[in-house]
Design a protein around this nucleic acid. Structure first.
Lengths: 250, 250
DNA sequence: GATAAAAATTGATCTAAATCAAGGAATATT
DNA sequence: AATATTCCTTGATTTAGATCAATTTTTATC
């Protein structure tokens, strides 16, 4: 299932990392890009497989995950349209350290390392653009790694909800248009992302709901008390309960 | 305590990320670099402080860590001479997401974002060089974040020992010159790095020693059974004990 | 070399969260 | 619309590893 990239504007121009490049550069990239459809549940690549391409998600939803010998799964991150992955494993010609699976049907663009690397080496703008996005990824990855160790599940969940809120709720301006967020994937995937189990996630969401911090309806979550959420993420549930009852029980 | 960079060869040329740059470029970088001495225990920057510079460790040892409201600490990584940090927080003019503390006396070079960014934007080689090192950092950060969730302490410890072994043991060739590794920092720092406590680390090291996998003398560790270590890191301690007694008790 | 401070060890206890188990939605398939 | 999956929830139980507490060892300072 191969085809040259459908539309330049979809695969290349709309992708953040390629934004701001000159037309001629975009055309070069489009020329070395090929896209394929992937159905929900299909694996784009597996952990351990040799990495020779940069992948860009065109549409749909993906997850990058790791799995232990015992079958425990951790979701490193979700990928939304425009995000790229398989990143610079390809720079060093190594193996993928995670498995990429489609959570929804979608198209994935692929650029082979041998085609991309010369472009990056020649084009400081492109390299700089990659640096910007990768620095943000690195920041998030390291911050989250720390969180998995030093923060308990309540805090990690609060942080995730706040993250989704800042990302989705504020997308049409600097003021939230409403207080609803939508989980990007099934709850078990969310659980595997914040380093817990579906059972524990269910209980924690329940607890937040009982304390009127949120209201859950399937994958839609109404943020009722963002201050309490902030407090939990920062100082923890125990202290919020002791000191800041007003914050929890408004 | 300010001074222009001591020696070009120390601060700049010997730094991996600047390796391979032309003399004229190195000179430019040296010109915008200043270095300062820091004593053991001193803080180079704190989490939350505005980030406006790239830092390069000249000599000594540093740790990048995060701390929770309750005082739990996680070490994101250690920095060895030539490593840089504060990385591209500066690209986005954000705040530091970790605290940098000296674990030994040393010198730190500093390059202000306003001086460095133009250089990167003009010089594709330099940008590419940063991409290479950052991609490796990202890989390690994400891989480790997954490990903190899906792997138990035994596995994480085995992975750390193997990592040190591959880094230190093999440094003078592709064959290990000996089977001794040295922990780069105090055990409590190692514990904070693999996401556990000093108490648990102590017990785990003991256990490995009882099973003749390693031999511990202060910070020096003799790797006696690297195969067992590999097995533990991959399939876990339980299975090693059940199936592979030979591996453990040679 | 003596004293003080910090780090590491060992044992006892506790707890957050995982696991196990069983129903009850929701979603997908025929 | 009925059936089969998959997902989610709720309760009971277990457990890895944290915490607490008390020495001992190591390192630093005088």
């Amino acid at each position: 299932m191969r085809s040259t990239c459908c539309h330049t504007d979809l695969c290349v121009q709309a992708v953040p990392v390629f934004k701001g490049l000159a037309e001629v550069e975009l055309a070069k990239i489009a020329a070395i890009t090929e896209s394929s459809p992937y159905s929900k549940g299909s694996i784009v690549f597996r952990e351990g497989q040799p990495a020779d391409s940069l992948y860009v998600l065109n549409n749909g939803l993906m997850k990058l995950s790791q799995i232990s010998h015992e079958g425990k799964q951790h979701n490193l991150r979700f990928l939304f349209p425009g995000d790229y992955f398989g990143q610079f494993d390809i720079l060093q010609n190594k193996q993928h350290y995670a498995t990429a699976e489609m959570l929804e049907n979608g198209r994935v663009c692929r650029i082979h390392r041998k085609d991309l690397i010369p472009l990056i080496k020649q084009n400081a703008d492109l390299a700089y653009s990659f640096l910007m996005t990768m620095s943000e990824q690195l920041r998030q990855a390291e911050e989250w790694a720390g969180a998995l160790h030093i923060l308990d599940v309540d805090k990690r969940l609060a942080k995730l909800l706040l993250h989704l809120y800042s990302k989705i709720g504020l997308q049409s301006g600097d003021q939230a248009i409403n207080d609803f967020i939508t989980l990007p994937a099934a709850k078990k995937e969310i659980a595997a992302m914040i380093g817990t189990t579906p059972e524990t996630l269910s209980r924690k969401l329940n607890f937040f709901e009982e304390n009127r911090i949120i209201e859950v309806c399937k994958r839609n979550i109404h943020i009722r008390n963002i201050r309490a959420l902030n407090d939990i993420a920062e100082i923890g549930l125990d202290e919020v309960k002791n000191n800041g009852v007003e914050a929890v029980c408004t």
